[in-house]
Amino acid sequence: MQLNRIIALVLVAVCFISATFGIQRRQMDEALNLKKVLDRDRLELVSLDGVITGTRASASGAMAVRDRLRELIEEDSVKGVLLSINSPGGTVGASKELYAAVKDLSEKKPVVVSMLDQATSGGYYTASSATKIYANAGTLTGSIGVILSGFNAKELLSKVGIQAQTIKTGPYKDIFSSFRDLSEPERQLLQDLLQSTYQEFITDVAKGRKLDLEVVRKLADGRIYTGSQAKENKLVDAIGTLDEAVVDLRTLARKKFNLPETKELPIRKSPASFERLLDQLLNQAGVSIALPFFDVVGNGKISGAIADQLTSKLAGQNMQMGNYDPPVLLMPSWFN
Rank of each mutant, 00 (worst) to 15 (best):
K132A: 06
A31L: 10
E155W: 02
Q24V: 12
R187Q: 08
S303V: 10
I224F: 03
D243E: 14
G227E: 01
M1E: 07
Y134I: 05
L282G: 03
R5T: 06
G90M: 02
L310T: 09
R5Q: 11
L43V: 05
N299K: 07
N323K: 15
T197R: 07
G122Y: 06
G322P: 05
N336D: 10
N33P: 04
A307M: 04
A119R: 00
A100K: 11
M321F: 13
D181H: 06
E232M: 11
D104Y: 04
A245E: 06
D76S: 09
K159I: 09
A230Y: 03
A153W: 06
N323E: 15
Q280W: 09
G54P: 05
G208M: 00
C15D: 12
N4T: 10
I202K: 03
L194V: 12
M28G: 04
L83A: 09
L329C: 04
A127K: 03
Y198E: 12
S143Q: 06
G322C: 05
S58Q: 05
N33T: 12
D67C: 00
F335Y: 14
E71A: 06
L282N: 05
S95N: 05
I239G: 05
A137Y: 03
T169C: 11
W334V: 10
I267Q: 07
A164P: 02
S47R: 12
F201K: 00
T262Q: 02
M331T: 04
S114V: 04
Q188M: 13
P327I: 08
D39R: 08
V296C: 09
N318D: 13
S312H: 08
V12M: 14
V215W: 05
L189S: 10
A285W: 13
A119D: 01
I17G: 03
K79I: 05
R56K: 15
Q165G: 07
A315V: 14
I224P: 01
Q27N: 12
Y134H: 10
Q320D: 14
L310V: 15
V112Y: 00
G222D: 07
M319C: 09
F176M: 15
D67P: 01
T20V: 08
S178Q: 03
I73V: 15
L242D: 11
L182W: 02
S18A: 14
I239Y: 05
L330P: 03
T53Q: 10
S178N: 10
A94M: 04
D308H: 07
A153Y: 09
K159E: 15
V287C: 07
T126H: 04
R56C: 00
L278W: 10
G322N: 13
G89W: 00
M319S: 14
E200F: 06
A19C: 14
R42A: 10
R187C: 06
S47E: 14
R5I: 02
V215F: 13
